[in-house]
């Protein structure tokens, strides 16, 4: 399996407090990789390193190497804007912009300088279809995105991310603010996205990790404890700590 992302000795500090400790892992292409672990273990911090989202956090310092398709993303001349177009991100809380549904999806293309109305329309339609939202909103693309339900908003955020045609999609607990039905829809969507995209999902929900992912990484206090095929992690973990966490006998 070709590694899309290679992380080597990645450490990260917030104001001198270490949040990640020498994480080394290779993330395979066109697979779903789940990151699990207790709260505060650095899961979100880790995936935010992959599109340099931590750059905008004050007092954050990163050491180590992250390469995507062989290109180091933390080297001095790396283009952050280009990187973020390649590595899309869906956040924990649905964060649609206070514009219309259409403008939300078109946003990424517009900031990239694409203004052709016809192409934009196609992109919006295609992205909404891919995110399984098109049927629900086709008649009201001009409505405010805020009028959608939480689950629809999250799918809109996924559509928005798909519109910029990324290769990698990072999902930071995308279902934690959603009800079970909306969650199920998004999980189905993640399985479909796997065909075309490399997906990395942070989740608190062990069943969700087991259902949607091919690979699972277990982080604990900033350290990568165990990483492997999901089935193996869940059925036969090598580390005692992993087993404790997965079976819920933690601490």
């Amino acid at each position: 399996m070709a590694a899309k992302i290679m992380v080597k000795d990645l450490s990260l500090w917030y104001d001198g407090k270490q949040a990640l400790k020498d994480v080394t892992m290779d993330i395979p292409e066109k697979r779903v990789t789940a990151i699990i672990g207790p709260s505060g273990c650095g899961k979100s911090t880790f995936i935010r390193c992959l599109n340099r989202m931590n750059d905008i956090v004050r007092g954050c310092r990163v050491k180590g190497k992250v390469t995507i398709d062989g290109e180091s993303i933390y080297q001095n001349n790396a283009d952050v804007v280009k990187l973020r177009k390649k590595v899309g991100m869906v956040f924990q809380k649905p964060n649609p912009f206070p514009f219309s549904i259409y403008d939300n999806v078109a946003y990424g293309c517009r900031v990239a300088g694409m203004n052709n109305k016809k192409t934009l329309k196609e992109v919006v339609e295609r992205s909404l279809k891919k995110a399984a939202l098109y049927e629900e909103v086709r008649d009201r693309l001009g409505d405010s995105a805020m009028s959608l339900s939480g689950g629809q908003q999250q799918r809109l955020c996924i559509a928005r991310t798909l519109a910029i045609e990324p290769e990698i999609i990072l999902m930071d607990e995308p279902c934690s603010a959603l009800d079970p039905i909306a969650t199920a829809k998004i999980e189905v969507l993640i399985r479909e996205l796997r065909e075309e995209y490399t997906v990395i999902i942070v989740t608190h929900n062990m069943q969700q990790a087991a259902r949607v992912s091919d690979y699972t990484a277990y982080l604990y206090i900033g350290k990568l404890i165990e990483y492997g095929i999901t089935r193996q992690i869940f059925e036969n973990p090598k580390e005692e700590n992993t087993e404790k966490y997965i079976t819920g006998r933690f601490g």
């Binding site: 599109n51 989202m53 280009k82 973020r84 991100m89 206070p98 946003y107 900031v111 910029i164």
Partner: peptide, 27 residues
């Protein structure tokens, strides 16, 4: 203006100025 709107914009490849101009200022 909530920070997560800014993050959403950055994550779509917008520059800082685009984020301010198109998301933060209208909000």
């Amino acid at each position: 203006v909530p920070q997560n709107l800014r993050e959403g914009s950055y994550a779509l490849g917008a520059t800082k100025w685009q984020t301010i101009r198109r998301v933060v200022l209208p909000s």
